[in-house]
C-alpha cells in the first residue's frame, strides 16, 4: 500500500479541528515563522513546548506526528552535517585534516534540526486537523484580496480542490492497477534499478490513461451543471470566527512576541 501523509485528514473533534480554518492556517504560518526567531536555548525550548502543547490540544495520536517527521529525517541529517563541518568558529573539539568540528557548529546544527522538525510537525498539524476541501476553501478566502491584481483566486482554489480531491482516488486507482498487474505476475519488488523502472511502465501507462479519462469526464460533468467559477457563488459552509479563534490569535501573537523578547534577555548562542 502507498502511504502518504499529504492531505491525510485525521477526523476528530478537538479544539484544533473546530477552529476556523482561516485562523488556523494563518496562525500555523505565524508559528512556522516564529520558530526562526529564537537565538537562544530558552526561546527554542519555548517553541518546542508550545508545539507539544498544541499537539496535546489536537488529540492526535503521537504516532501520527512521528510519521510526518520520518520522511524528512535524511534532510535534517544532511543539513545538520553540513553545518557541523562548515562552521569553523568557536572552540574546536575535533580536527582531522580539513574536517573540523566546533562547539558552535554543533549548536547551529542542532538549532537547525529542531527548527526543521518543528516546522514540519507544525504544518502537518494543519493538514491532520483540516480536511483538504476546507483547507482550499480557507485559502481561497485568504487570497481573495488578490482579485484586485486580476488573479482569479476562485479558479486557482478550484484547481487545488480538484487536485486534492483526486489524490485518494488516484492512490486507489494505482493500487488497483498494481494489483491487476501483480495478478498477471508483474514483479515490482525485485531486480536492479533499470528493471524496477521498467516494471513501472505497466502501472504508469494505465494510470495516465485513466487520469485523462477522469479529467474529461469531470469537465463534462461540470459543464453539464453549468459551472461558472467566481462571482456570485454562495457557500454551503460559512466560515465564522468565534471566541476561541480570537483567543488563539492572542495566544500565538503573545508567543511570538515572547520569543522576540527572550532574544533581548538571553545572549545569542548562534
Amino acid at each position: 500500500m502507498i502511504d502518504i501523509t499529504l492531505g491525510q485528514y485525521f477526523p476528530g473533534n478537538s479544539f484544533l479541528h473546530r477552529m476556523d480554518p482561516r485562523v488556523k492556517m494563518v496562525l500555523i504560518f505565524l508559528y512556522i515563522f516564529s520558530v526562526f526567531i529564537p537565538q537562544n536555548w530558552v526561546g527554542l525550548g519555548l517553541a518546542v513546548a508550545f508545539l507539544v502543547f498544541v499537539i496535546i490540544l489536537s488529540r492526535l495520536p503521537v504516532k501520527l506526528i512521528f510519521k510526518s517527521i520520518k520522511p524528512i529525517i535524511p534532510l535534517v541529517l544532511i543539513t545538520s552535517a553540513l553545518n557541523i563541518f562548515y562552521i569553523s568558529d568557536g572552540t574546536t573539539l575535533f580536527k582531522w585534516g580539513f574536517i573540523q568540528i566546533t562547539t558552535k557548529g554543533i549548536t547551529t546544527a542542532s538549532f537547525i534540526a529542531i527548527r526543521i522538525i518543528c516546522l514540519i510537525a507544525g504544518s502537518s498539524l494543519l493538514t491532520y486537523t483540516t480536511s483538504p476541501t476546507t483547507l482550499t476553501d480557507a485559502l481561497e478566502r485568504l487570497l481573495s484580496p488578490l482579485k484586485v491584481v486580476k488573479l482569479n483566486v476562485h479558479e486557482l482554489a478550484m484547481m487545488m480542490t480538484i487536485a486534492l480531491r483526486f489524490i485518494p482516488t488516484l492512490i486507489e486507482e494505482t493500487d488497483k492497477i498494481m494489483s491487476a498487474q501483480k495478478a498477471r505476475g508483474a514483479d515490482l519488488e525485485s531486480g536492479g534499478l533499470m528493471q524496477r523502472i521498467r516494471a513501472l511502465i505497466p502501472i504508469i501507462v494505465p494510470l495516465f490513461v485513466s487520469s485523462f479519462r477522469r479529467a474529461f469526464d469531470l469537465a463534462t460533468a461540470m459543464e453539464c451543471r453549468c459551472y461558472r467559477g467566481g462571482e456570485r457563488r454562495t457557500r454551503m459552509k460559512q466560515m465564522k470566527m468565534r471566541v476561541p479563534d480570537y483567543i488563539s490569535i492572542v495566544v500565538v501573537l503573545a508567543f511570538a512576541a515572547g520569543l522576540l523578547g527572550l532574544n533581548f534577555i538571553f545572549k545569542s548562542v548562534l
Partner: peptide, 12 residues
C-alpha cells in the same frame, strides 16, 4: 488467475 473489475483499465 484473477481478472479484475473493468480489466480493460490495466491494458498498457
Amino acid at each position: 488467475g484473477l481478472v479484475f473489475q473493468y480489466p480493460e483499465h490495466q491494458l498498457f
